[in-house]
Amino acid sequence: MLLITCPWCGPRAESEFSCGGEAHIVRPKDPDALSDAEWADYVFYRTNTKGDHAEQWVHTYGCRRWFNVIRNTVTYEIKAVYKPGETPAGGEA
């Protein structure tokens, strides 16, 4: 049971949250300008990082806000939590 710090509500139990997968997958502005391969990369392909991984989480049972988490997929340590549109303290998103 992870302890996740919601940027608004503070530290809460993992059971209040849902994970939405990799963060910073930006929807292309003009999908028609993309090749099939580029579009497939956006829709289907994820990095599956071993180590620090930027993820989107939503505080499902709490404030229902989406936010970003840098979580180490090996140690489960949460290195940073930041709101959409922000960059994590001390690093690149």
């Binding site: 509500c9 809460r12 059971s15 209040e16 049972y61 709490g62 404030c63």
Partner: peptide, 8 residues
């Protein structure tokens, strides 16, 4: 008192 929280 004065606080509230959503949870489950």
């Amino acid at each position: 008192v004065g606080q509230c929280a959503q949870s489950h």
